[in-house]
Structures are given as structure tokens and as C-alpha cells.
Computed example of a mutant assay.
Amino acid sequence: MTRDERRVVSPWNIANVLTVLRLVLVPFFVVCLFLPGTGWRLAALALFGVASITDHLDGELARRYGLITDFGKIADPIADKALTGAALVSLSILGELPWWVTIVIVGRELGITLLRLLLIRHAVIPASYGGKVKTVLQIAAIVLYILPVDIDPLRWTVMGAALVVTVGTGADYVIRAIKLRKVARQARGE
């Protein structure tokens, strides 16, 4: 590809706008979650739903229309972690989700994010299918916890599945990172 054929992608594109929108929605979601009454709980659910949809949509648009930017590569995972982390911490503060669940999931997410930052100069490990399943299960579990109805067995089951996949994909990511680091060292002749 020649220099003239390369297209400069502005960070001000629809994919990045959706990512920023997700970040902006997080505090409004949290406030609605803490306000009393079914109406506020449903408002929190709606905000969480819209924010979760932008998570899928921004990546899809970026890939389909070539809108991938350095800003998006950094902001998208931050927005994802902010949304799920805020939801889990809020539900634990409200006494609706055990703290140990929040600590395991948030700890895994922070650990993998830190690992990604450490590896970024060597290579980017693409999201695995398991990572996509993890995200869907976490969102589904959080939605079930936000719903203002008593469906505990279903909540526990989906959150349990989310926990298992979260820990499993975290371990898989660490293994892939170790292999990548080893290959990078071998390429440098270390």
C-alpha cells in the first residue's frame, strides 16, 4: 500500500462517539440504580441496555467501515470495564450481589487490562471467542440482577456461568500472553 493509498481515520467517528457515549452513560446508570422505586430500576436497566448495545455496535462499525483508531483501541476496553465494573460494584453496595463475585470479576478484568498494556508494544492479543461469550454472560447476569423481579435461581445460574467463563478466559489470556512474550524474546535473540 502506498502512502497515498493509506486513509487517515479521524478519531471523531461514529464508532468512537458510541464508545464515549457508553462512558458518559455509566454515571447516569449508577445514579438510577441507587434511586428507590421500580421506575428508577427500569431506567437503570434501560441505560445499561443502551450502553451494552453500544459495546457491540462500536466494534462492528469500526471493523466494517475501517474506523479503527488508537483512541478506540484504548477507550473501548476502558468503557467496557467502566460499565460492567460500575454495575457489579453498585449491585454489591446495594447488597444484591456478593462482594466476592465482584472482586473476582473486576480483579480479572483489571489484571487482563494491565497485562494488555504491558504487552501492547509487542503485539495485541485478539479477543477470543471465549472472551465474547464472557462479555455476553456478564451482561446477561447483570441485566438479571438489575431486573426488579425475584428470579434468584436464574440470576445465580447465569452469574455462575459468567464467573466460570471469566476465570477460564482470564487464564487462557495469561497463557497466550506468556507464549507471545516467549516468541517476542526468541525473535530478538534473547
Rank of each mutant, 00 (worst) to 15 (best):
L42M: 14
I120M: 10
A44Q: 05
V136M: 14
H56F: 15
R116V: 09
A62W: 04
G111D: 05
Y65E: 11
D80Y: 08
L97E: 01
F34N: 15
Y65N: 06
G111E: 04
D150T: 14
A162Y: 07
P148F: 08
I151Y: 04
A87D: 02
R108F: 01
G37P: 03
G131H: 09
A162W: 05
P36C: 12
F48Y: 14
T166I: 00
T157N: 13
W40H: 13
V167Q: 04
A82D: 05
L147C: 10
G66M: 11
D55P: 04
T157W: 15
T69V: 11
R41Y: 11
L97C: 06
L67Y: 07
L137M: 10
L110A: 14
A86Y: 05
G49D: 13
L118D: 00
I78M: 13
L114N: 00
T54I: 12
R155Q: 15
L45H: 05
V167E: 01
A86T: 05
V30P: 03
P77A: 13
L137A: 07
R41T: 15
D150H: 15
G111Y: 06
P77S: 08
A123K: 15
T135H: 00
V167Y: 01
C32H: 08
L47V: 13
R108P: 00
P153W: 11
T166P: 04
I125P: 02
T169M: 11
L114R: 00
L67D: 12
L33Y: 09
V133A: 14
D152E: 15
G85I: 13
I74Q: 15
V149R: 12
V158R: 02
A161R: 08
G85R: 09
R63Y: 09
H122D: 03
L67R: 05
T169P: 00
L137N: 02
Y65M: 09
G170C: 13
G131L: 15
F29K: 06
H56A: 12
I93G: 02
R121M: 08
K132C: 10
W99G: 03
I103H: 02
A44M: 05
A75I: 09
G85Q: 09
I139R: 01
G130P: 01
G95V: 09
A171S: 13
R63H: 08
I146D: 02
T54D: 09
T54R: 13
G39Y: 13
D172V: 10
A171L: 15
D80R: 02
T113N: 07
G168M: 10
L118I: 14
I139Q: 02
I146L: 15
A44F: 11
W156E: 14
L88A: 05
A140I: 08
G107S: 06
I139G: 01
V31R: 11
I105W: 04
A162G: 03
I120Q: 12
T69Y: 12
L114I: 08
R63D: 01
L67W: 13
A87R: 12
A140P: 00
D58I: 07
I151N: 03
G39N: 12
E109R: 04
A44K: 03
L57R: 04
L163T: 06
L144R: 03
V143A: 12
R108V: 01
G66V: 11
D70M: 10
S52R: 09
I105H: 00
